[in-house]
Design a protein around this nucleic acid. Structure first.
Length: 774
DNA sequence: GTTAGCAGCGTTTTT
DNA sequence: CGCTGCTAAC
């Protein structure tokens, strides 16, 4: 590896440029490194975006490339936006003149529109959302005479997506995959692609896969872009999947000025086809590559950094970095256990209120500076419930997305059909919404007629009417529908038409708004509200076409309200962000690390989960609080949880174990909440033998290590041996003897309450020592 | 053809 | 528990 320092020193002497001010030597070296392949290994909070954007500014300022000759790729729209903003700030308004800065997918679309005919598409192809995709899959599955119950569309969608991520076209799927999906995966994949082509449509995976195919089959086209893109920059390289990797490698074979920025410790998208191996292999893939390490962290206190490092150290096969910081020590990472998920939410709510008032060793923290990062979206509910009741303002990132709501999709299907008459999926979605008396039978007739005339469903419908193949109420409704679409299509085809008014007319005259107005359900008003918001969103575009294109790629709703709110989001969504105060709830085995990840990917899965833990901790600047609950509701059933194995990996000297109020009965629980409806957590819990044993050891603030705390809880919540005759304790029924067991369902003969059947997770082992009557 | 009511299922993470 | 999708009655 090349030592970065000499490079930077040479450059410093040569050319003082204002945009280079404030870079540390490593960053500066990275910015000014000579041409050729460079891998910037940038740990969390080391200023990688800064180095990347400054590199772009540097290329432009030194005249090495014009704005449109730089290909700069990110993974998320958020990252692309940020990059644009920051480059713009560095060098003025040039960022808008950088057409090739964006996500893999948005750049993929741009390329594909230019060369669509090379993969059998027209340049006005539509991009399917997940909903359309699934409906298409269902059609393909039933056309293949497979039982949709046994072979669900979701599974096929996942399979095909995984194949596309590996850059396999149907012909390229290796024979080892043949058994997939009842031996028919490959066949169905091919059928699905055929359908897409007929529909002149693409799914998300195609946006990359088609590009790769074009590059591979048309060297002239590839050469043209290789010449054009003098510099290629890639953010979050560790998240690259095979298709993206090939895409990059093909393009980078020209000028070889490929610069990738990444952190192997933050690779968290393996489930989407990303392979850590890609970044680990960089030097081999690109001979002569220079590796630059950014290791000075500007974000987090030493305790936080050390805690994160301690956890990630358990992973094998890392490239290895030693993050350091010169910030003051600050607070240790806090660890706390709770009785159940609701208490965890309650406690965090109160902590946040205390933090806002400046009662937690830090200066008052504003809500915007506080984030709760969860492993899985369903964890958010407990926090939302709690925060609503105490009136704590919050925002959820990545929750139910605006553009995925039913009413928005319906309205957009109307727009799609009006813009492109052959959009059969849009037709299917709205032909009977609102109800027009055109049910399964009428729709099947339309399908048949369409096949008969060899056209779109719209053509088929027209033919059906002409033939008189549809009678009664349906005929009139269908005629009205067709006339409407035709009329609006004419408007949409005129240059400079008022697209907002047209959109309004469409949802009005089609009867769509009327449908919701007539709807008496409580959420109808909200849906009408959303439709208004949709019309407002149109203002930022010139045409319906332009709007639809945008929405297909940017499914997130950026309602960046100015209001001060606490943020709730998943760990995945949090990558790249930072907050003074971070809460990491739900550190329980099965939830985090997630059971599914472990089942599907074993040790590799655990390692990816561990990287997720690393990402989580390193989001925090000043205060990081990890928590777990002993019980959690899953599918409405209470389940006992074990503290996460990652807790053992937290270095004790950087962590304070807080006295869990719920576990010792201090302040929360019984006194405050008795009389409220009975949850698993209430009143009696403090009498269970395990918790009593914990209580006997006394409050342990700061005196216990994470590992000991975890062991204590595991001990206390240990399930009874499912042996007949075992003595157990239940919160409500008291002590009893196991008289039967079937898997995790026990039959217990309780001393006072009689014989009960219940889940093993509801009882704890009763030790003779603790068998004190109460 | 539409609607109400129930059975069965599922929860990682996202462009 | 809450949603989807299927079946039975209007």
């Amino acid at each position: 590896m090349t030592d970065p320092l000499p490079l930077s020193m040479r450059a410093m002497a040569a050319r003082p440029a204002p945009y280079l001010d404030g870079l540390n030597p490593a960053q500066r070296a990275a910015v000014e490194a000579l041409d050729g392949p460079v891998l910037m290994l940038a740990g969390a909070g080391t200023g990688k975006t800064k180095a990347l954007t400054t590199r772009i500014a540097h290329l432009l300022a030194t005249g090495k490339a014009r704005p449109n000759e730089i290909l700069a790729v990110t993974f998320t729209n958020k990252a692309a936006r940020e990059m644009k903003d920051r480059v713009g700030r560095l060098i003025g308004e040039v960022a808008e003149g950088m057409p090739w800065m964006g996500t893999f997918h948005s750049i993929g679309v741009k390329l594909l529109r230019r060369h669509a005919e090379l993969v059998g598409l027209k340049s006005n192809f539509t991009i399917l959302d997940t909903d359309d995709q699934l409906r298409l899959m269902k059609q393909v599955i039933s056309a293949a005479n497979l039982d949709e119950k046994r072979w669900p569309a979701r599974q096929l969608a996942g399979l095909i997506d995984a194949w596309k991520n590996r850059a396999w076209t149907p012909e390229q799927v290796p024979s080892s995959e043949a058994p997939q999906f009842n031996n028919r995966g490959t066949e169905l994949y091919a059928a699905y692609q055929d359908r897409l082509r007929t529909l002149n449509a693409c799914d998300f995976g195609d946006l990359l896969l088609h590009c790769v195919t074009i590059f591979q089959r048309h060297p002239d086209v590839l050469a043209q872009y290789q010449r054009w893109f003098r510099y290629i920059l890639v953010d979050e390289y560790q998240d690259t999947n095979v298709a993206q990797y090939l895409w990059l490698r093909l393009l980078a074979q020209g000028p070889r000025n490929l610069r990738c920025v990444g952190d192997d410790d933050q690779s968290i998208y393996g489930w989407r086809g990303a392979e850590v191996g890609t970044i680990l292999r960089f030097e081999k893939d690109f001979p002569g590559a220079v590796v630059v390490r950014l290791e000075q962290n500007y974000r987090s206190t030493p305790h936080i950094l050390a805690a994160a490092s301690g956890v990630i150290a358990a992973n094998a096969g890392r490239l290895g970095k030693t993050l350091w910081t010169d910030l003051d020590d600050g607070e240790k990472v806090r660890l706390i256990g709770h009785w159940d998920g609701e208490e965890e939410a309650r406690w965090i709510g109160e902590e946040i209120e205390a933090l806002e008032k400046g009662r937690r060793a830090l200066d008052p923290v504003s809500p915007n500076g506080i984030a709760i990062l969860v492993r899985a979206a369903h964890q958010m509910r407990a926090f939302e419930d709690r925060f609503l009741t105490i009136g704590l303002p919050y925002r959820v990132i990545g929750g139910p997305r605006f553009y995925e709501r039913q009413e928005i999709r319906d309205a957009m299907a109307y727009f799609r059909l009006v813009v492109s008459l052959e959009d059969d999926l849009a037709f299917e979605r709205i032909i009977n919404v609102p109800k027009r008396g055109l049910g399964d039978k009428a729709q099947a007739d339309i399908q048949r007629a369409a096949r008969g005339v060899g056209g779109s469903l719209l053509d088929g419908a027209a033919a059906l009417i002409a033939q008189g193949g549809i009678g009664g109420r349906g005929a009139g409704a269908l005629r009205g529908f067709l006339e409407g679409i035709a009329r609006w299509h004419v408007v949409a085809s005129q240059p400079g038409y008022d697209h907002i008014r047209l959109a309004e007319t469409i949802i009005e005259e089609s009867g769509y708004t009327a449908m919701w107005q007539a709807d008496k359900s409580p959420d109808a008003a909200g849906r009408l509200e959303n439709l208004k918001e949709l019309l407002k969103a149109l203002e930022q575009f010139d045409t319906l076409q332009g709007f639809l294109e945008h929405v297909a790629l940017i499914m997130d709703n950026e309602t960046d309200e100015a209001a001060e709110k606490v943020t709730i989001m998943t760990l995945h969504a949090a990558k790249g962000l930072e907050y003074p105060v971070v809460f990491l709830p739900g550190w329980e085995d099965g939830l985090f690390p997630s059971q599914r990840s472990m089942d599907e990917s074993g040790l590799k899965g655990v390692e990816e989960e561990r990287r997720l833990a690393y990402v989580g901790i390193t989001r925090a600047e000043r205060l990081c609080t990890i928590s777990f609950a002993a019980n959690r509701r899953v599918y409405g059933q209470w389940q006992s949880q074990m503290p996460s194995r990652f807790i053992d990996e937290l270095p004790p000297e950087h962590v304070t174990v807080l006295t869990p109020p719920g576990l010792y009965g201090g302040g929360y629980g019984a006194a405050a909440y008795s009389g409220v409806e009975t949850r698993a957590a209430q009143a009696n819990v403090y009498n269970s033998p395990g918790w009593q044993r914990m209580q006997a050891r006394g409050p342990t603030r700061g005196t216990t290590s994470p590992k000991e705390a975890r062991a204590l809880v595991i001990d206390a919540t240990a399930l009874p041996a499912h042996d007949i005759g075992a003595r157990v304790f239940h919160q409500k029924f008291g002590y009893g003897t196991v008289s039967g067991a079937d898997g995790d369902k026990l039959t217990v003969d309780f001393d006072k309450a009689g014989v009960k059947h219940l889940m093993a997770s509801f009882v704890t082992a009763a030790d003779a020592v603790d068998d004190v009557p109460f």
